[in-house]
Simulated scan of single mutants.
Amino acid sequence: MADVTVFHNPACGTSRNTLALIRHAGIEPQVIEYLKHPPSKEKLRELAAQSGLGVRGILREKGTPYAELGLGDGKWSDDELLDFVLQHPILMNRPVVVTPLGTRLCRPSEAVLEILPTTGPVAPFTKEDGEVVKDSGKRAG
């Protein structure tokens, strides 16, 4: 089976849809509930770089202490921002998915299709809200 890892928050609908979509494609990923098992500082740095978003790009504002901590201020270095994520794992945006085809912040959940290591298009998938996702079969790489 393909090596797929999901940094997952089961309380998040987008994260649940992404995980379900991966499984719908016939892939059983490694699921890391990052609030219970936060990634190391180096792993966070690696995910930020591999996703192409950078450290600020993997920060979540909504439902987190982002504003309270003043993280929108440009004075914070990447290293300092990563320290905040280690102290408050909820600051990591989700879901982040890692596959042999790339690393993506999968918002919306169907963004995962770009990096799923499948041989053809995934059958249509219905999200929790009833929206149907159709796969074009196009993959990164």
Results as ranks from 00 to 15, higher is better:
residue 30 Q to G: 05
residue 54 G to H: 12
residue 67 A to V: 11
residue 70 G to K: 05
residue 41 K to D: 02
residue 64 T to W: 05
residue 4 V to F: 09
residue 110 E to K: 10
residue 62 K to P: 00
residue 30 Q to Y: 00
residue 120 G to H: 09
residue 55 V to W: 03
residue 72 G to H: 03
residue 30 Q to P: 00
residue 107 R to P: 08
residue 78 D to K: 14
residue 20 A to N: 13
residue 36 K to T: 02
residue 130 G to I: 10
residue 9 N to C: 06
residue 52 G to T: 06
residue 81 L to K: 07
residue 111 A to M: 03
residue 104 R to I: 07
residue 34 Y to I: 04
residue 108 P to M: 05
residue 133 V to W: 08
residue 113 L to A: 05
residue 25 A to P: 03
residue 38 P to L: 03
residue 127 K to V: 00
residue 83 D to H: 08
residue 126 T to L: 02
residue 44 L to M: 07
residue 104 R to A: 03
residue 68 E to Y: 02
residue 106 C to H: 02
residue 36 K to C: 01
residue 121 P to F: 04
residue 33 E to L: 04
residue 132 V to L: 03
residue 76 W to H: 15
residue 51 S to L: 08
residue 32 I to R: 09
residue 60 R to G: 03
residue 70 G to C: 12
residue 128 E to H: 07
residue 52 G to N: 12
residue 62 K to E: 13
residue 34 Y to R: 04
residue 47 L to Q: 07
residue 135 D to E: 05
residue 66 Y to P: 08
residue 37 H to C: 01
residue 52 G to V: 09
residue 128 E to D: 14
residue 63 G to S: 09
residue 130 G to D: 03
residue 67 A to N: 10
residue 42 E to W: 01
residue 37 H to S: 13
residue 27 I to R: 00
residue 96 V to E: 00
residue 113 L to W: 00
residue 17 N to M: 13
residue 22 I to V: 15
residue 123 A to R: 09
residue 5 T to Q: 05
residue 44 L to A: 03
residue 43 K to E: 15
residue 29 P to W: 13
residue 41 K to Q: 02
residue 125 F to V: 11
residue 82 L to Q: 03
residue 100 P to K: 08
residue 17 N to Q: 14
residue 30 Q to L: 13
residue 4 V to W: 02
residue 96 V to K: 05
residue 130 G to E: 04
residue 5 T to R: 14
residue 95 P to L: 03
residue 86 L to G: 11
residue 23 R to D: 01
residue 139 R to V: 07
residue 4 V to Y: 02
residue 55 V to E: 01
residue 2 A to G: 09
residue 103 T to K: 10
residue 66 Y to V: 09
residue 80 E to F: 10
residue 18 T to I: 12
residue 120 G to V: 00
residue 15 S to I: 04
residue 85 V to F: 10
residue 81 L to F: 12
residue 27 I to Y: 04
residue 36 K to G: 04
residue 5 T to F: 06
residue 48 A to K: 04
residue 21 L to F: 10
residue 105 L to A: 01
residue 110 E to C: 00
residue 65 P to W: 09
residue 91 L to A: 13
residue 101 L to Y: 08
residue 79 D to I: 11
residue 62 K to R: 09
residue 8 H to A: 06
residue 129 D to C: 09
residue 134 K to V: 14
residue 72 G to E: 13
residue 16 R to Q: 15
residue 65 P to G: 11
residue 7 F to W: 15
residue 119 T to E: 13
residue 96 V to I: 15
residue 74 G to D: 14
residue 116 L to N: 11
residue 94 R to P: 01
residue 11 A to K: 10
residue 93 N to H: 06
residue 53 L to T: 07
residue 129 D to K: 12
residue 140 A to E: 05
residue 137 G to K: 08
residue 59 L to S: 02
residue 48 A to L: 08
residue 109 S to T: 04
residue 10 P to I: 07
residue 5 T to P: 06
residue 118 T to I: 06
residue 63 G to K: 07
residue 16 R to F: 14
residue 16 R to D: 15
residue 51 S to Y: 10
residue 97 V to D: 05
residue 51 S to I: 10
residue 93 N to E: 12
residue 123 A to S: 11
residue 18 T to Y: 09
residue 85 V to S: 13
residue 19 L to P: 02
residue 116 L to Q: 10
residue 51 S to N: 07
residue 121 P to V: 03
residue 120 G to T: 11
residue 18 T to G: 12
residue 52 G to D: 13
residue 132 V to D: 03
residue 18 T to C: 15
residue 9 N to P: 12
